[in-house]
Lab assay of single mutants.
Amino acid sequence: AQASVVANQLIPINTRLTLVMMRSEVVTPVGIPAEDIPALVSMQVNRAVPLGTTLMPDMVKGYA
């Protein structure tokens, strides 16, 4: 199954992502693919992302 990017902590709005904030997990619905984690580093989220939330393309500025 495809692993997705999941928030490893609460990520406040406009925060630049770092590796420690993200983990890969097989979840439904599928979000951003886990292999994109390196590309997500330093991108900003456009909303607060609670712990355990799957990151979707529309949550990350410049990803989609």
Rank of each mutant, 00 (worst) to 15 (best):
V5P: 00
A7S: 11
Q44T: 13
N8W: 05
T54H: 03
A48Y: 10
M59S: 07
Y63T: 04
A39I: 14
E35M: 08
M22W: 02
P12K: 08
A64Q: 14
P38G: 14
A48D: 15
L10A: 10
P33Q: 08
A3P: 10
L51G: 10
I32Y: 01
V41G: 02
S42Y: 08
A39V: 09
D58Q: 11
V60W: 01
P12L: 12
V5T: 07
D58C: 11
R16M: 15
L10W: 07
T53I: 14
P12H: 11
D58H: 09
Y63S: 04
P38V: 10
S42F: 11
P12W: 04
I11N: 00
V27Q: 04
V26E: 12
L40R: 00
A34M: 12
S24Q: 14
K61T: 13
N46I: 13
M43Y: 07
A1D: 15
T53G: 11
G52Q: 03
Q2D: 15
V60C: 03
V20M: 15
M43T: 06
P33M: 10
R47A: 15
V6D: 01
A7P: 02
L10V: 14
S24Y: 06
K61M: 11
T28P: 01
I13R: 07
P57F: 05
K61D: 11
Q9G: 07
I32V: 09
T53R: 06
V20Y: 11
P50V: 13
V45L: 07
L19S: 12
I13D: 13
G62Y: 05
P29K: 08
L10Q: 15
M59N: 08
N14T: 06
N8V: 11
L19Y: 11
P38S: 11
T28I: 11
T53V: 10
P12R: 05
E35W: 07
D36V: 13
V49S: 01
P57Q: 09
L10E: 12
T54I: 10
M22T: 01
I11K: 00
I32N: 01
M56Y: 08
R47K: 13
D58N: 10
L19I: 12
L19A: 11
A34K: 07
T15G: 07
R16K: 10
P57M: 06
M43S: 09
P50N: 12
V6E: 02
A3Y: 10
T53L: 08
A3Q: 08
T28D: 15
R47L: 11
R16S: 15
T15N: 05
R47D: 14
A34P: 06
N14A: 13
D36I: 09
V6S: 02
V27M: 09
D58W: 09
R16F: 10
Q9P: 02
A1E: 15
L19Q: 08
Q2R: 04
T28R: 03
A1T: 09
Q9Y: 15
P29Q: 08
A3G: 11
A64M: 09
P12V: 05
T54C: 04
K61F: 10
Q44M: 14
